[in-house]
């Protein structure tokens, strides 16, 4: 009888050790996946951030510096520049996306601006960056979902508490971003431009 007890205890202990190693490694790997997924978005957000001054310069020539769109672009850029944590960056990025939605609409209001080669080029570039952000956001959200699921699952939940891992926030689209850009809200008054 004791042999079987010994065998049972041996199997259970061995299994527990293997499971503990597996859970620990799994959580660390997930955490790294998450950080990597965020870094991959951050690179693109930075590229978009760098495009904004050029965009402002071009729009300024036609719409004037006092336009509401330019103000919101400048503010959004400043907010993103001062954001440090992931959550802050996600919020600032949302504000920047809303501001950039107006750029597409301003072209319709100023035919000269729409005909400007630089503006078209910049608009295309920003649009490409927005697409990339959208795709990478999907990847990031999947990584967050995987991470959060594992954090809530038994028995990973205990290891996660020991490692002090916290649930992460998804990079979701805000209500304001989802709304159709309003010409009234973003555009300067006609005739105000240069």
């Amino acid at each position: 009888m004791n042999l079987f007890i010994l065998l049972f205890v041996g199997i259970v202990l061995f299994g527990l050790v293997v499971m503990a190693i597996n859970i620990y490694n799994g959580l660390v790997s997930l955490r790294n996946q998450l950080e990597r997924a965020w870094s991959n978005i951050d690179v693109i957000l930075k590229q978009r951030f760098d495009e904004i001054p050029q965009l402002i310069q071009v729009i300024e020539q036609y719409a004037g510096y006092e336009s509401q769109l330019l103000k919101s672009l400048v503010n959004a850029r400043a907010n993103y520049g001062s954001a440090r944590t992931v959550d802050e960056k996600i919020q600032a990025s949302g504000a920047m996306s809303i501001a950039l939605q107006g750029v597409a609409a301003i072209g319709e209001a100023y035919p000269e601006l729409k005909a400007n080669g630089n503006f078209v080029q910049l608009q295309t570039r920003v649009s490409q960056l927005e697409n990339t952000i959208a795709d990478r956001r999907e990847t990031y959200n999947e990584a967050v979902a995987n991470f959060n699921t594992r954090l809530d699952q038994f028995p990973d939940v205990f290891a996660a508490r020991m490692l002090n891992y916290q649930r992460q926030t998804m990079f979701a689209v805000s209500e304001a971003e989802r709304a159709t850009p309003s010409l009234k809200m973003n555009l300067p008054k006609f005739g105000q431009g240069a």
Binding site: N131, R136, T139, Y140, N141, E142
Partner: peptide, 9 residues
Amino acid sequence: DTPRSKIDT
């Protein structure tokens, strides 16, 4: 655990 990516981005 690996999040899926789209090829173009």
